[in-house]
Nucleic acid binder design. Structure first.
Length: 530
DNA sequence: AAGTTTAACAACCGCCAAGGA
DNA sequence: TTCCTTGGCGGTTGTTAAACT
């Protein structure tokens, strides 16, 4: 935090110096510096000068806060009211607490965020002297760092604390007006973490004193997009590339005691208001871990969601039921987020994990299903797929799911795995890797590979009362009903057809699949490269 | 020593809700 | 009831300095 302090102290001293260069000033400093202009003409943007600050402070002394648009009239300050208000609130207020966040404050921020999500103003209200902007900046920087480090956003004890507080009281903390979604969502069932999930835990990284609990998975559209695909189980584990600086990690994890409990709701973060849409299909689509499939809570099939734990930036103040406003944080889908735990639950690999796998072939993770081709290459997978197809008329959909590995897992462990560029070339809108932005995220509700043509058959196989999406919200990667080969955006989607495509469309689709596999093997028509 | 990366920070932008005309 | 103004909030971007390679 020495750096932080230094930065903070430096702030005022260097402010004017910084301003000499200007950031986004709409006109020159000379113009702005005059400050007391006629109150007309273009309003200045960019950094504030000391003179402007003095004018604003003087104005507030005389007139009090508020009526910010009048500042320009009364003082001649060439700033819009909004800008004045911001400057006052964030920098000039006398009760502001300058300097770096203390460890206590940092912890408080984490706790508050776990409860509130991105409610910066409310968080600031809980931290006297701190501004929402400060907290927001801190948080964004923090989660960026944590993601880069592959560390969980929320320490275990914070999760437990929120969980406990939510159980003790229907109103968490001092949240007004029943804004308790986060806490309620945290009341997910206690999860036992299968041991297998930690096989690849890289404790040797040295900065993971506790079991990772909450992982910063985007909850909003990005999350929805990815959850049925590859990254919904992108658990934040130490990256293969440790960050250059982990000062924060030291601070946080030294500050926050690491009492880990096996009952920490590890996977609740995957479940949001539409959890029923995503969890269950995913359950189906992980047949190589049927042991886990039988473990409902593992997949959160019936669980309430946890926005707070989903995403460091996720706001969860929105009602759970009904349309949810998508809040898309800037950091919600960093590349490093994908380079994560090699959980078998991740049907599609992150690029980094693929790279890792290519560089160092997988070992443990491929042991779960001797039948599945996940330990072989894509070619084997396709061969395997063809075998499955042959038997598909006999086997029920459910059986097939239970006996087959996710095709994308084949890709995952395959040395033929296409690289990121390939995916991007294919179809960004369908690629989780291509979704670094917030556009159109809600358009593809990830239902994994379930055929949208016959949700009933799926439901009959489920113990949980799950309502599946209809075709209009079909999975991003699933084979679309009207699909031609061009709509098969990924090889695993092709394979999925075989894995899950025992539906009424099967006969029609099968020839397409055959073509597609042929294309995969020989034509390279979509730009798959080795 | 130079170039690159990262963290911290400041400020703007757009959206939204409340209140008043 | 509608429109406008104001204030608040959250997301994003640009800049700088420090740290790192």
């Amino acid at each position: 935090m020495g750096t932080l302090s230094a930065m903070s102290n430096m702030r005022n001293e260097s402010e004017d110096r910084k301003m000499s260069k200007g950031r986004r000033s709409s006109f020159s400093i000379e113009e702005a510096g005059s400050g007391e202009n006629s109150g007309e003409g273009p309003l200045k943007k960019g950094p504030w000068t000391s003179a402007e600050d003095a004018i604003l402070v003087e104005y507030v002394k005389k007139h009090g806060e508020g009526n910010w648009n009048a500042v320009q009239k009364h003082s001649g300050l060439a700033r819009c009211g909004k800008s004045c208000r911001l400057r006052w609130a964030n920098h000039l207020r006398p009760d502001l607490r300058k300097g770096a966040f203390t460890p206590e404050e940092e912890r408080r921020i984490i706790e508050l965020h776990a409860k509130m999500g991105n409610k910066w103003a409310r968080m600031a209200a809980e931290l006297p002297g701190r501004t929402d902007n400060e907290i927001k900046n801190y948080w964004n920087t923090r989660i960026k760092r944590m993601q880069r480090a592959g560390l969980p956003i929320y320490p275990a004890d914070v999760c437990l604390q929120v969980l406990n507080s939510s159980q003790e009281s229907p109103h968490v903390g001092s949240l007004p007006n029943g804004d308790i979604q986060h806490a309620d969502l945290l009341q997910a069932q206690n999860f036992e973490i299968p041991d297998v999930e930690f096989k690849n835990l890289k404790l040797s990284q040295g900065y993971l004193p506790f079991t990772p609990t909450i992982f910063d998975i985007p909850e909003s559209g990005m999350f929805k997009q990815s959850v049925g695909l590859s990254h919904s189980y992108d658990l934040q584990f130490p990256d293969m590339r440790p960050p250059k600086r982990l000062r924060e990690a030291d601070t946080i994890y030294n500050t926050l005691e690491s009492g880990i409990s096996s009952s920490v709701p590890i996977f609740t973060q995957y479940v949001d208001y539409n959890c029923e849409k995503v969890a269950e299909p995913f359950k189906l689509s992980s047949p190589c871990h049927s042991d886990l499939n039988t473990n409902d809570h593992y997949h959160g099939g019936n669980l309430p969601g946890s926005h707070a734990l989903l995403n460091g930036n996720a706001s969860s103040s929105e009602p759970i039921a009904g349309p949810m406003k998508l809040e898309l944080p800037s950091l919600q889908y960093l590349e490093t987020q994908q380079g994560s735990w090699e959980t078998p639950m991740s049907p599609l690999p992150s690029i980094e994990s693929v790279d890792t796998l290519i560089k160092s072939p997988p070992n443990e993770q491929t042991q779960s299903d001797p039948i599945s081709p996940q330990s072989s290459g894509l070619l084997e997978a396709i061969i395997y797929e063809s075998r499955v197809l042959k038997g598909s008329n006999i086997n029920s959909c459910h059986q097939t799911r239970d006996n087959c590995a996710m095709p994308s897992e084949v890709v995952k462990s395959s040395p033929l795995n296409p690289n990121e560029t390939d995916w991007e070339e294919l179809d960004d809108t369908n690629s989780p890797l291509g979704h670094s932005a917030a556009s159109g995220l809600s358009e593809h509700t990830p239902i994994s590979m379930i055929s949208t043509d016959e949700p009933q058959s799926i439901e009959t196989t489920q113990e949980n009362d799950i309502k599946h999406e209809t075709a209009k919200d079909g999975p991003a990667y699933c084979f679309r009903k009207k699909g031609s080969l061009n709509q098969l955006t990924r090889p695993d989607a092709l394979l999925d057809l075989g894995w899950f495509g025992h539906n009424s469309e099967y006969g029609k689709d099968h020839s397409i699949l055959t073509d597609a596999i042929g294309a995969l093997l020989g034509e390279d028509r979509h730009g798959y490269h080795e």
